[in-house]
Amino acid sequence: MIKSQLVERIGRKLSYLSEKDITLCVNNIIDSLIKNLSKGKRIEIRDFGSFDLNYHAPRLAHNPKTGEKLITDPKYVAHFKPGKDLKERINASTQPIRAAKDEESEE
């Protein structure tokens, strides 16, 4: 599923809202998720999951091409932890896994 399909699916449920408004809302939500994570703020969505930042300490590594030794920079990495409901629903699924793009040919 890609963004336009998400807008369409929400529109089927909330038919009293215009597609334009739903598009604005979807963009607004995605922007806030990005902005807050980028500021280092956690996100916690009940029944969906949480986005956390994991700290990766500097470590000894080497460049696989040149063999040169180096120390990685310490960094943060965004991590999503699925909630219980999401985990159970995904695990109960009997449908094959399909790439996001292929959905265009679904209906």
Partner: peptide, 11 residues
């Protein structure tokens, strides 16, 4: 969630 439960990955 519904999309993922149907097997569709989300982008």
């Amino acid at each position: 969630k519904a999309s993922l439960a149907e097997g569709w990955q989300v982008k």
